[in-house]
């Protein structure tokens, strides 16, 4: 238990992804229909709904973030905007607004536990959930892409800050950091 172990978490800045924000009343059938029309599914609160067409992340009771291949984003956003014309909804492509990071390795949970005030212990945070919180001093959202892997997004302007903070946190662990 007490012996000193060192493990390294891999932090990788990912290339820009496709992202679309949808603001709508998520309880309303119109929103469910709009997603269904483009092959997407409505997530439950704080969950990510996965389909072949893309992932839909629950951001707030009236906001979704759609994650798709970058080359599809503009067309998908345009298609959605057209489909919901006349409805009280807002569709905006936001692919450029955020930076994405992959954090992977056996100590990925501990890396984020140094920066985020969130219970990231196994069983408490697992794939399928999205959590918006802060990474040190900036807003972020994070979710798990596998048993030891996270994806994290933050605003583009603070990407360097987030990358440095993540890399600083990713270098050193010991048995004292079990969650």
């Amino acid at each position: 238990m007490a012996e000193h172990t060192v493990a390294i978490t891999r932090v990788e800045r990912l290339p820009q992804g496709g992202m679309i924000t949808l603001r709508a009343d998520l309880e309303a059938q119109e929103a469910v229909d709009l997603l269904g029309m483009v092959g997407l599914a409505m997530p439950e609160m704080r969950r990510i709904a996965d389909t072949e067409a893309g992932q839909v992340a629950w951001m707030s009771p009236d906001e979704l973030l759609i994650l798709c291949p970058p080359e599809r984003a503009a067309a998908l956003a345009a298609q959605m905007a057209e489909a919901c014309a006349g409805e009280h909804m807002l569709v905006a492509e936001v692919s450029d607004a955020r930076a994405r990071f992959a954090i992977a390795g056996p100590t990925s949970r501990q890396t984020l536990a140094k920066l985020c005030p969130v219970d990231l212990a196994p069983g408490r945070f697992e794939p399928g959930e999205i959590r918006r919180t802060r990474l040190a001093q900036v807003a972020c959202a994070l979710w798990m892409t596998g048993p030891e892997a996270f994806e994290l997004i933050c605003f583009r302007s603070v990407a360097d800050y987030a990358e440095t903070a993540l890399n600083t946190a990713a270098t050193q662990f010991d048995a004292g950091m079990s969650l």
């Binding site: 609160m45 704080r46 707030s60 009771p61 005030p117 969130v118 959590r131 918006r132 919180t133 802060r134």
Partner: peptide, 12 residues
């Protein structure tokens, strides 16, 4: 009450 998260003050 909107997202069900219980969080520390620094998130608010």
């Amino acid at each position: 009450p909107y997202c069900g998260v219980t969080a520390e003050e620094t998130e608010f």
